[in-house]
């Protein structure tokens, strides 16, 4: 019973190697990593703080899917890698400071004054723990690394509901934002807090249209003969 960990060290050659370690059954992945670090290989590097799924620090990719290592029980043969679309610092540690800059770019904070009675509308969105699982799951980032990504947009939607002054944020999410999303829903599937960024993004699109914005994809769509011919064939 083993797990494989993709290790990375920019000072080594090759920089990345897969290493296999024994699986400690019954323990979470984070507990497995700690066991490896403290008893087998102290150089194994990873993050983890709260152990109970709320601090957001221990996200990794398991067999290609983002997981919190404190909330996942590994199985024989699992392949553990750092989160996708992040610069890898070392082993399973990634640079989140860049992804978290999207919060600033998108003005994901309260802009006007808070509307108390709307608190209950943002119960789910405000559960975000900034684990970056959704970001790691988002295929748009494979083609556009400037895409704001799901968690920032969910936060923008949260504050849009909580405040009546949102122009700055709505303006900020037009480019590399809501219209770049393919609505594939991978973010929603990956969220350990059951947040649904896909729906939040759709709602932000409606709000944007109400604010006079148009879907740029729609403007670029071709309605030439070819499509129509196909349609009526």
């Amino acid at each position: 019973m083993n797990i494989t960990i993709r290790r990375f060290d920019k000072r080594k050659e090759p920089q990345s190697i897969d290493m296999t370690y024994p699986l400690f059954e019954g323990l979470t992945l984070l507990e497995n990593l700690i066991k490896i670090k403290t008893t087998i290989d102290p150089t194994l590097s990873f993050n983890g703080v709260c152990r109970s799924g709320v601090c957001g620090s221990c996200g990794v990719s398991v067999n290609g899917k983002a997981k919190l290592s404190c909330s996942y029980k590994p199985s024989d043969g699992d392949v553990i890698e750092p989160l996708a679309y992040h610069e890898v610092e070392r082993d399973l540690i990634v640079d989140k400071t860049k992804t978290h800059k999207t919060l600033k770019t998108s003005h994901a904070h309260l802009l006007g004054s808070a509307i108390l009675e709307n608190s209950s509308k943002v119960t789910v969105q405000s559960d975000c723990i900034l684990c970056d699982s959704c970001y790691s799951a988002c295929p748009v980032l494979a083609v556009n690394s400037d895409f704001l990504g799901p968690f920032a947009l969910t936060k923008v939607y949260r504050y849009t509901l909580q405040s009546n002054e949102n122009k700055k944020a709505i303006d900020a999410i037009q480019k590399n934002g809501i219209w770049d999303c393919t609505l594939c829903g991978e973010c929603t599937l990956s969220c350990p807090q059951d947040i649904d960024p896909k729906t939040d993004i759709m709602n932000l699109r409606s709000i944007s249209v109400q604010n006079g914005y148009n879907d740029p994809n729609f403007a670029n769509m071709s309605f030439g003969d070819f499509e129509f011919n196909n349609l009526f064939r």
Binding site: K104, A108, H109, T123, S126, D127, I129
Partner: peptide, 20 residues
Amino acid sequence: YAEDYTGLKILQTLHDECLK
């Protein structure tokens, strides 16, 4: 309280405010 996530929601909101 904020469901059973009071500390989490306070902390995340403070962080957003710091960025602002």
